[in-house]
Design a protein around this nucleic acid. Structure first.
Length: 206
DNA sequence: TACACGATTTACT
DNA sequence: GTAAATCGTGTAT
């Protein structure tokens, strides 16, 4: 079942980050369909979160998208070479976002391999925020793209395929002072048997 | 205009 | 374990 617009407009961005674990992230970019089970997310809580680009109400050309109504993508460029993909949430004026950090590929794996220059180990395909964006064909031009459209969408499967979820502090936000300690990161452990049943055509996971 | 840096990845020692 | 790659963005001149 495709997640609808209303799913993303909640103010509870931490809850949303947790709820996104176990959903299926899809893109259909340049005619190539890719999908993966979301296994790692981080919440960035708007103006009060020192780790967020919108901390203190910072409103710039880059962060403007975060302030829009939830249900669109916030894609930004960092380290001179990487794009990172975020789910914008909450209502207009509240710049909450969820960073997608990792997925388990379940469709379009050959396309991902091409885009990622054929890593030797398949587990390296989408196990990081920049890797995932690259594998799914996401670039800056997808900033502000709807998450309920034909290019990018998210599906909630009828079966829960996540065994358990671990919470932890976020990665790479040491600069955020006290907020660096918040347990805003969620990592899901998929049940391989259930995943194989759900995606029977996929023979090689992770 | 100038400059320091980053919600990272990769290759190499 | 360390370091290089590489450039848009934000903040200060």
């Amino acid at each position: 079942m495709k997640l609808e617009h209303d799913f993303f407009t909640t103010d509870n961005v931490v809850g949303l980050a947790k709820e996104l674990i176990g959903t299926i992230f899809h893109t259909n970019i340049n005619g190539k369909h890719c999908a993966g089970i979301v296994t790692e997310t981080e919440a960035y809580a708007g103006v009060t979160d020192r780790a967020s680009h919108a901390f203190g109400g910072r409103l710039t050309k880059r962060t403007e998208v975060m302030y829009r109504e939830g249900g669109i993508a916030y894609v930004y460029f960092t380290y001179g070479m990487h794009c990172l993909f975020n789910v914008v949430s909450a209502t207009e004026g509240t710049p909450h976002a969820v960073l997608l950090r990792a997925v388990w590929p379940v469709a379009g794996i050959e396309t991902m391999m091409e885009r990622r220059s054929f890593p030797k180990d398949k587990r390296l395909l989408t196990n990081g925020p920049a890797k995932l964006a690259q594998a799914f064909g996401i670039t800056l031009e997808h900033n502000a793209t709807s998450l309920c459209g034909d290019l990018i969408w998210i599906e909630k499967p009828s079966d829960n395929c996540i065994e358990h979820i671990v919470e932890s502090p976020r990665i790479g936000v040491d600069y955020a002072g006290v907020d660096a300690a918040l347990n805003y990161r969620f990592v899901g452990a998929p049940d391989e048997k259930i995943v194989r049943r759900m995606f029977s055509e996929t023979n090689d996971l992770r």
